[in-house]
Amino acid sequence: MNERKITKSDINKMEARCFFVQNSHNYERMISLGILHAFTPILKKLYAGRPKEEIVAAQKRHLEYFNTMPMMVPFILGLSASIEENTTEDEKDSVVAIKTSLMGPLAGLGDSLLNFTLFPIAGSIGASLAIQGNFLGPILMFLLVNIVYMPLRLLGGHWGYKKGSELLASDKGKSTLDKISNMANVLGVVITASLIPTTVKITLGLNFGEGEGAIVLQQMLDNIMPSLIPLAIVMLCYYLLKKWQGKYVVSLILGIIIISVALSYFGILI
């Protein structure tokens, strides 16, 4: 039972297929077809020469609903491979159970570390160079993203296969995941908040009085606190998104466009 059938090259094949994992993404079962496609090299090895019913059942259980952050897929499938290898045909429920229990927490972790943190950092560094006409911008952005992504995808599967089951067996594994998730949250919030003054820009064009003694409203506000209005706008958007539970993003953007055009026409915004 414990002899290892799965080789490094099987894991490599699986990882290579993970580069296309969301191709058949759909509203019903999300990336399940991509998961089966990526996991096929493993199943092929494990089920070589087995009865047809078992092969059908194996493919069925990996075609069930699945969705997570794509960078986490190699790890999850590596782990699934080791469980598939060490369970008998009667124990296969545990493969699905473990796979499904991991998709939520790992997606949360991946989203807050990668989508909410890495991409805004890389994007803002890249874009700030780019608008000055510096080609280092996109190059730097590409490198920053892939320096983190590549190890996750090229080592994740191997790591999940070797270490995953040990990690899960201990209670510590789950609490560690929780802890890292919360720490990633802190990281993401600090970064996002720090991007408000540098990316949201707004200048009021209103003046009171004429000539030398005129009061420039924008200067007054800047004296109170720089980026006061950008902060207020982000807070307003935050409130509206929460209130509408994430719907109407498009309406929000359209609203901003209409209001900006109107206010700029009257010279309130410049």
């Binding site: 989203d111 807050s112 909410f116 805004p120 949250n185 993401g188 919030v189 996002t192 908040a193 991007l195 408000i196 990316t199 949201v200 820009k201 707004i202 950008p230 706008i233 982000v234 807070m235 958007c237 935050y238 509206l240 998104l241 929460k242 994430g246 993003v249 929000l252 953007i253 901003i256 466009i257 900006s260 055009v261 109107a262 206010l263 700029s264 026409y265 915004l269 410049i270």
Partner: peptide, 21 residues
């Protein structure tokens, strides 16, 4: 007005990030 809007629209993206964290 659209150029001005393009500098306000990031607020929506940042608010989306915040609302998840």
């Amino acid at each position: 007005g659209l150029t001005i809007a393009s500098k306000i629209i990031p607020a929506v993206g940042l608010a989306m990030l915040l609302s998840m964290m």
